[in-house]
Design a protein around this nucleic acid. Structure first.
Lengths: 224, 224
DNA sequence: CTATTATTAATAGTATTACTATCTTTATTA
DNA sequence: TAATAAAGATAGTAATACTATTAATAATAG
């Protein structure tokens, strides 16, 4: 017996739904492993096809190119974060506590129970941290946006902005704070590991916990 | 009569100093124009060589690859921002005012007097906004960092963190706030233009001014 | 004011990437 | 059992990211 969970993503993100076939799920599973390993720049459909004993042509039947595949994975990630934020804040009434849970979920997204067996959420989080912002920092951003390719992200921003406004209704930039929490969370996990001079996080502490503390400190001051 | 200003950048960023020759300055000038136009992904040395009536091989004598060239330009940008922050804050004693000038300089970097004729600072800022973070979001980040390729950025972060600590000595994360101001400044200029749903900036206002106001609002609350 | 040296241009070549096309085999379902 | 859809096998192309070599030109040193 297995619990089937299907994440619903914008249909423009694939040519053929990868969740519906063995090959499709294999593409998702192994693209996450390979992109995490090589980085998006060195990742190719050719390399992936060799890894899964398939062919480039077969992968192209699911995703038009690797940029779309990355968009697919990034959207998956934010859907998954949203899902966990929802169930974790469901029975919470205090807005401040809600925001703390949100921050915790952002930082420790990868530690929660895995949802589907073919997605390694820990590696997926690493991809989003390293390559996530590349999906919108392109010349096609307006076109991609018009197709709704950033909807998972902005829908989460909407949810979080509501909580922020609950904590402090007079705070002027609830959206910007929401998205900045997302960006900071990813950025400072990365900085703590690779460019510690850009943070105030000392090597001793657990990095993710340190980032969580920092985000709470920022949020508290901003919404005081 | 011309005032010669030479920006000094990490020597690992080029094979031959482009500031020292006509061809080198032409490479800088036109790479800025082309990268701004095409985005770093579609930019190639081939296209640049055609634009400047030279050859790929000649460009490769200055820069080992386009990633290094981008690093060179990004470092140039931060050196330039630092220079303006320095002269603008030179005679200011009040730390709060200093921070406001820093924020203004970050947002309006491109509007100040151009420093060297072959660098279009306005286009350079657009490149940094769109592609700047790609220089460190790579698998080679640790290696590049060990060579000092992010020194201009982190040295500016150091300067700004000092001012932040002057404003409020008990603020726990002066470095993180400094770098976050840099990132936010670039991010929200970009978001305001392309993904306005992720900000609270309305279409009516001047985008950069709106971003400046937002950064001041954040800084003030955080350092109160 | 030549001779030497450094710089740039011209040309060619290679492995890899990012696809597209076609055809055969295998699995599914009607 | 026939029809159809999915996947595999194979081939091919234009562009990219280089490296190498040789020729032309400019700078400079003796």
């Amino acid at each position: 017996m297995s619990v089937e969970i299907k994440i619903s993503l914008n249909e423009g993100l694939y040519l053929k739904d990868p969740q519906d076939s063995e090959l499709g799920r294999n593409i998702i599973k192994n693209s996450i492993i390979l992109i995490e390993e090589l980085g998006i720049e060195s990742f190719t459909f050719k390399k992936l096809s060799i890894r899964i004993n398939s062919t480039e042509a077969s992968i192209y039947r699911y995703f038009g190119n690797k940029h779309i595949l990355l968009l697919y994975l990034v959207n998956w990630y934010w859907e998954w974060v949203k899902y966990f934020i929802n169930i974790n804040t469901m029975n919470i009434t205090d807005s401040k506590t809600k925001l703390q849970i949100i921050i915790h979920s952002l930082v420790f997204a990868s530690r929660e129970n895995p949802m589907v067996e073919y997605v390694n959420e820990s590696k997926l989080q690493k991809i989003v941290i390293s390559d996530g912002m590349k999906v919108y920092h392109t010349k096609e951003v307006d076109n991609d946006n018009s197709k709704g390719f950033f909807r998972s992200y902005s829908s989460l921003a909407f949810t979080v902005s509501k909580v922020i406004s609950e904590v402090n209704p007079s705070f002027k930039y609830p959206y910007a704070l929401a998205t900045n929490l997302f960006e900071m969370s990813n950025n400072y996990i990365f900085f703590a590991q690779h460019l510690p001079k850009l943070t105030d996080i000392t090597a001793k502490e657990n990095e993710n916990e340190a980032v969580e503390n920092m985000l709470n400190y920022f949020a508290e001051k901003l919404l005081a």
